[in-house]
Design a protein around this nucleic acid. Structure first.
Length: 433
DNA sequence: GATATCACG
DNA sequence: ACGTACGTGATATCG
């Protein structure tokens, strides 16, 4: 390491030091691994194989056995040329074919019974891949030891691989759910279990990125909401629709929630319209989304100002800066292509927010792990999923560790809005108990 | 190796 | 007149 890197004045110093402190924490996390209920997973796999082969047979019955369902090219030809289904989209893809992605399939679902079969086939296929990945356990301990990569992402987040434990399906079932695939999907976090005599404590930051947006913008509505524990989406709806908090409908709240998500992503009218269409099940136009955005930014003018500032700073510097000094170069801002520059602007709005959240949870992991060691507890951090930490601990430690995790995460940094942590305990990662 | 698809936050 | 939400990893197909 050269002298410049250890110099406190070097811009990377704080972030670098934090990453160094985090390294042993990650090492312990990887070494601990996490236990899998292998027999349950196997049963799920068998059930899925059966479902998949039934679907395969039904689909081939309709379009003929020569078609490879996994080939989008062959599938597109089969649907739109052979079966003569009417595409609900004007633009073709690069191969000159109509797309067969989930979004488009959903639009043409009413035209033919085969579409639902295809969607289910894809789902069973996708779930079977998780079965395969989670089966890679140590023969003695039945634990998988995934990789967690503390550096490497553009924003400062973790990534996970071999297997990726940060994209395990997270489906909460409605009480009246009967779809067997949905039910199977909801069981994937149930096969992730603590060792004998231990339990899981799952702690997640509530809306951490939106809170960071409040900190960055110092918008009075957002600050007020988080200081007084108001429902942020309902508040947003009441501003956008100019109505009282009590009169906001479920639909209006859903719209507001999409706006708040979009905010963090540097939303566009098309992106918002698309998200609204997904969330509400009704078609929403680009123009409608544009009006919503205009109203939103009029009401939350400091948010608008803050996003503009983030862009301006990134354009001047060539990089974005998160709250604790983390930088991300954004060369797209100096591209000759308009679409690239626009993309760069969205990155400039999102990176400081996502990056600050990443730093906060990293700091919390360091502090929590150190506290655990200092107090000679047997608890272990076993997973991190961006705004969530999963701890495995002996049952007799549960009470103490629960409190420690929550307080550590909530107080690891002091911001102008409080950080709130939700806690769950359980005998598996689904936490349904 | 690029592209598409699909799982997560 | 464009092309659009941010960040990841795994897998199958196709050239």
């Amino acid at each position: 390491m050269n002298k410049q890197q250890t110099d406190k004045t070097f811009w990377w110093a704080d972030t670098y030091q934090m990453e160094q402190q985090l390294t042993p924490v990650v090492a312990r996390m990887e070494q601990s691994g996490i236990k899998i209920n292998v027999s349950m997973l196997q049963n799920m796999g068998n059930e899925l194989l059966q479902i998949k082969s039934d679907l395969e047979q039904a689909i081939h019955q309709i379009i003929g056995t020569t078609v490879n369902i996994n080939s989008n090219e062959q599938l597109s030809v089969a649907l739109f040329e052979q079966l003569q289904l009417k595409p609900q989209i004007t633009t073709k893809n690069k191969k000159g074919l109509f797309p067969v992605d989930k979004k488009h399939l959903n639009k043409i679902k009413q035209q033919h019974q085969i579409i639902q079969l295809l969607l289910d086939y894809r789902k069973s296929n996708s779930l079977l891949k998780f079965v395969g990945q989670l089966s890679d356990v140590h023969p003695k301990t039945k634990r998988i030891h995934a990789g967690f990569h503390q550096i490497g992402t553009a924003t400062g987040r973790f990534s996970s691989s071999r297997p990726n434990l940060q994209n395990i399906p997270n489906v909460k079932l409605d009480a009246d759910e009967t779809n067997p695939l949905k039910i199977l999907e909801s069981k994937f976090r149930e096969v992730v279990i603590p060792a004998k005599g231990k339990i899981f404590i799952c702690a997640d930051y509530s809306q951490i990125e939106l809170r960071i947006t409040a900190v960055y913008s110092q918008d009075p509505f957002l600050l007020d909401a988080y200081h007084n524990g108001l429902d942020i989406h309902t508040l947003t709806a009441s501003q956008v629709y100019d109505s009282s908090l009590e009169s906001i409908t479920d639909q209006q709240r859903k719209v507001a929630k999409s706006i708040n998500f979009g905010l963090i992503y540097g939303m566009t009218s098309v992106g918002l319209a698309e998200s609204l269409t997904q969330v509400t099940g009704k078609v929403h136009s680009k123009e409608e989304a544009e009006k919503l955005m205009t109203t939103y930014f009029n009401r939350f003018s400091k948010v608008k100002q803050c996003l503009d500032d983030l862009i301006k700073q990134a354009e001047e510097n060539g990089f974005s800066t998160a709250l604790f000094g983390r930088r991300r170069p954004i060369p797209q801002l100096r591209s000759n292509k308009l679409s690239e520059r626009k993309s760069g602007k969205r990155i400039a709005m999102n990176s400081p927010i996502q990056g600050t959240a990443a730093d906060i949870i990293k700091k919390a992991m360091i502090k929590l792990d150190n506290e655990i060691i200092q107090k000679q507890l047997k608890a272990k951090i076993v997973l991190q999923v961006h705004d969530e930490i999963l701890v495995e601990c002996p049952k007799d430690e549960a009470h103490q560790v629960e409190k420690l995790v929550k307080e550590t995460m909530e107080n690891v940094v002091k911001l102008t809005v409080p950080l709130e942590v939700g806690l769950e305990k359980g005998s598996n990662w689904a936490m349904a108990h």
